[in-house]
Simulated scan of single mutants.
Amino acid sequence: MIVLLPPSETKHAGGDGQPLSLDSLGSPELTELRATLVDELIALAADRDASRRALALSAAQDGEIERNATLRTAPTAPAIRRYTGVLYEALDVDSLRGAAAGRAAARLAVGSALFGLLRANDPVPAYRLSATSKLPGQPGLAKRWRPALEPVLADIAAAELVVDLRSGSYEALAKIPGAVRVDVVAEHTDGRRVSVSHFNKAHKGRLARALASTRSEPDDAASVAATARRAGMRVERDGLRLTIVVPA
């Protein structure tokens, strides 16, 4: 089973790994496009105004542009520890120990606008590029990634279950046949339900933690739902789609 996480805009700075080596990342089929995008971001960083427009940044966020300028020389960290935010706080991968930590390293992956697909321990620098970014003179990232990334994800999905927790803009980079998808809804006392927006990340982070660390080997939507329920979550299943129900 692979649990595919969305990335986050915010990322931990620094790291103690060697500078970026694209050849060290998983899914070498993606290396060519990764290298192209890295080079484009480095070149773009020389023009702050253009970087702000392309990356939807304010002047107060110029540090993000500086990160992009040093993509090939900055220290790296494992992908699963690079990203920050609500989902990654709920996942809390650093608190896993022993066999649970090993299972998490094998099962967790991250969708990335810059690298396409990252396994948990792939070493990457901090960067700024979102799925909705459009680099000057280039097509949108979904159009660029789909031909390269969809075959890679299809091969993975043919071999093992994929639980796809990505947000809509990252789903658009590549579809995954047969993946389990997850929604989060809040239920009022009168039975009305509304979609959860920001805090769905926390619930997906808790689900990711349960799936990453479980001793069982979920291999279909029903066993994913069962794992979530054992972790104390209320989950409903409709085919390949799971709904986490939380109090409003």
Rank of each mutant, 00 (worst) to 15 (best):
A74C: 09
P6V: 08
R146W: 04
E64K: 08
P7N: 05
P177D: 05
G98P: 12
S213I: 11
P151E: 02
T73S: 12
P123R: 01
S8A: 15
G111F: 00
S27W: 00
P28Q: 12
R181D: 09
V180S: 09
P218M: 10
D23N: 12
R206T: 13
A60R: 15
A104C: 12
R146G: 03
A157W: 04
G137A: 06
A148R: 09
A158G: 13
K175I: 03
A208S: 09
G178E: 06
A109H: 04
L240S: 13
T243Q: 08
A202H: 13
A90I: 05
P123D: 04
V110Q: 03
S130L: 14
V152Y: 01
S27K: 00
P139Q: 10
H12K: 06
V194Y: 10
P139V: 06
V124K: 00
L153H: 02
L37V: 12
L91V: 08
R72Y: 06
T36A: 14
E66M: 10
L91I: 07
G232H: 10
A142N: 07
S167Y: 10
L30C: 04
A43W: 09
V110N: 01
A231L: 07
G178I: 10
S95C: 09
V194A: 13
L161S: 11
P147K: 07
G232A: 11
E160P: 02
E66R: 15
D16G: 15
A179W: 06
R181K: 15
M1E: 09
N200H: 08
E217I: 15
G232D: 07
L71Q: 02
G191D: 07
L33M: 10
V93E: 11
K134I: 14
P136N: 12
L41V: 08
G102R: 15
L44C: 06
A208V: 05
D155F: 00
A225W: 03
A69Q: 11
A120H: 05
A101C: 12
A69K: 06
R82P: 00
L33W: 03
F115L: 02
T132L: 13
G14Y: 04
A120K: 02
D92P: 04
S197Q: 14
S195C: 02
P7I: 01
K143P: 02
A99T: 15
V124D: 00
